[in-house]
């Protein structure tokens, strides 16, 4: 069970695994996730979004970035190895509907969970504009797959090594200023990016959906560890989410909760966040 059928490295830190999981492949819908435990009983449990599934083959696709111990362990697994525990599909599926023009915004690894949603939005008859962002060209993933879906594809990198130089919020703002403005935005990426993405669309009243990836333990509503404040109310990401109205999420509290266990956060990521934050603040002032 849970055998790895295929493994590809998408960038320096990003891997794609195709894992045998026939029941999950059959039931899963866009927006849902699994919880896995790489090795024995003392391993940490982490949530990962189901990036794709093949019900005929009985497999699901997971795309992840090596950030902590567990994701590094997972990256060490080879084809033929098994993942100790795989639980899912969890969470509420994305609400897919024909609304008109949907802007899908993916930052870094967030492009992976965005893919099935963009696909479903397109299949439902929407015009789909995709904005993809990464720190630099080598960290950009799934460009080919996204290009197949998008009516328009905009790529931005922080350093300008590919596509436009800047942040995903720049083209997002331009789209919001157009007439007619987009009917909906789906933003998935690092919390800081989702926060400023939502701030970008807010003044234009463009309905904005974000997908939250909080710390989880059971993923079934048992512990409350994944809770966030949405519109002043406490919500459990694993059962009420993972998708919420981006204009109602208290991102500042969520980011602080995410950092609760990682004073050791990788300096590189920290620098990136600060850079993003500064740039986004500048944008806010405009």
């Amino acid at each position: 069970m849970n055998r790895i059928l295929k493994k590809t490295q998408l960038s320096a830190e990003v891997f794609r695994l195709e894992v045998e999981a026939p029941l999950i492949a059959h039931e899963r819908k866009p927006g849902q996730f699994i919880i896995l435990q790489v090795d024995d009983s003392i391993g940490e449990r982490i949530p990962l979004t189901i990036a794709d599934a093949d019900p005929v083959n009985g497999s699901i696709t997971l795309i992840f970035q090596t950030v902590g111990k567990t994701t590094h362990l997972l990256a060490d697994k080879q084809v033929g190895d098994s993942i100790a525990a795989l639980l899912g599909p969890l969470g509420q599926p994305t609400h897919i509907e024909k609304v008109g023009h949907v802007v899908c915004v993916g930052g870094g690894i967030g492009v992976a969970p965005l893919h099935p949603i963009a696909q479903a939005m397109k299949a439902a008859g929407n015009k789909v504009t995709i904005i993809m962002g990464a720190r630099n060209k080598s960290l950009l993933i799934m460009e080919g797959e996204m290009r197949k879906i998008a009516d328009d594809l905009i790529i931005v990198t922080d350093d300008g090594s590919y596509g436009r130089k800047g942040l995903v919020t720049h083209p997002l703002k331009e789209l919001c200023e157009q007439s007619p403005k987009p009917d909906m935005a789906v933003i998935i990426g690092p919390p800081i990016m989702m926060k400023f993405g939502a701030e970008t669309t807010r003044p234009y009243g463009v309905h904005t959906v974000v997908s939250l990836n909080t710390i989880m333990i059971d993923g079934t509503g048992m512990c409350g560890g994944c809770r966030v404040t949405v519109g002043g109310k406490t919500q459990f990401v694993c059962v009420d989410g993972p998708e919420f109205d981006g204009h109602l999420v208290d991102f500042d509290n969520m980011m602080k909760r995410l950092r609760a266990y990682k004073p050791r956060e990788d300096a590189d990521h920290q620098a990136h966040h600060c850079h993003l934050e500064e740039a986004a603040k500048a944008l806010e002032k405009q």
């Binding site: 048992m222 409350g224 560890g225 809770r227 966030v228 404040t229 406490t234 602080k256 909760r257 609760a260």
Partner: peptide
Amino acid sequence: ENLVGVFSANE
């Protein structure tokens, strides 16, 4: 209640 350091007994 959603501050860091507040847990349900379950968690």
